[in-house]
C-alpha cells in the first residue's frame, strides 16, 4: 500500500526482529528489519527521498551501540527528522539520558513492554512528526 507507514527496525536478535516485523505488519506498518547498525545506515542512504517514518533501535548492536548510530544519523539533516524510539534490555540512567539528549524520542525497556504498546507509541510519534523529506 502506497500510504502505509514504514518503520526501520534495527535489532540484532533474529527472533525479536521477526516478532517485531510480524506485529508491525499486523498493525498496518511496513517493517524493514536489519540486524546491524551499518545495514540500517545503508538502508537510509539507499532509500533516497522515501525515508522511513520512524526508526526502532536496539541499543546494543553487534557493530555499534545506539549512541554511535544516533551520531551517524546526525550527519544527515534529513535523517534527524525521523523519530527514533530506542527499545533495549538495558536502560541505565546514563544510557537513557544520553540517547534522549542526542535526539531519541523515547527509551523503552524491552522485556517490560508488549509489542502492541510499543507500536502504539510509534504510531503516536509518526502522527506527531513532520513527513520526512529528502
Amino acid at each position: 500500500m502506497e500510504d502505509q507507514p514504514t518503520v526501520l527496525v534495527v535489532e540484532d536478535d533474529k527472533q525479536l526482529l521477526n516478532a517485531i516485523t510480524i506485529k508491525l505488519s499486523k498493525e498496518g506498518i511496513s517493517g524493514i528489519g536489519v540486524l546491524t547498525g551499518e545495514q540500517g545506515l545503508k538502508y537510509l542512504q539507499e532509500s533516497g527521498p522515501k525515508l522511513p517514518n520512524a526508526i526502532w533501535l536496539d541499543y546494543y548492536l553487534k557493530d555499534m551501540n545506539g549512541l554511535e548510530f544516533m551520531q551517524k544519523i546526525q550527519t544527515q539533516p534529513a535523517w534527524t527528522e525521523i523519530p527514533v524510539i530506542v527499545v533495549s534490555n538495558s536502560a541505565s540512567e546514563d544510557k537513557v539520558h544520553s540517547m534522549l539528549t542526542i535526539g531519541a524520542k523515547k527509551y523503552i525497556l524491552k522485556a517490560q513492554s508488549r509489542l502492541e504498546d510499543i507500536i502504539d507509541q510509534i504510531k503516536d510519534l509518526i502522527a506527531q512528526s513532520p513527513v520526512p523529506s529528502s
Binding site: 525479536l16 516478532a19 517485531i20 506485529k23 522485556a111 508488549r114 509489542l115
Partner: peptide
C-alpha cells in the same frame, strides 16, 4: 522473545 511471540 517468548513474551512477544506469546503475544503474537
Amino acid at each position: 522473545a517468548i513474551k512477544w511471540f506469546a503475544e503474537l
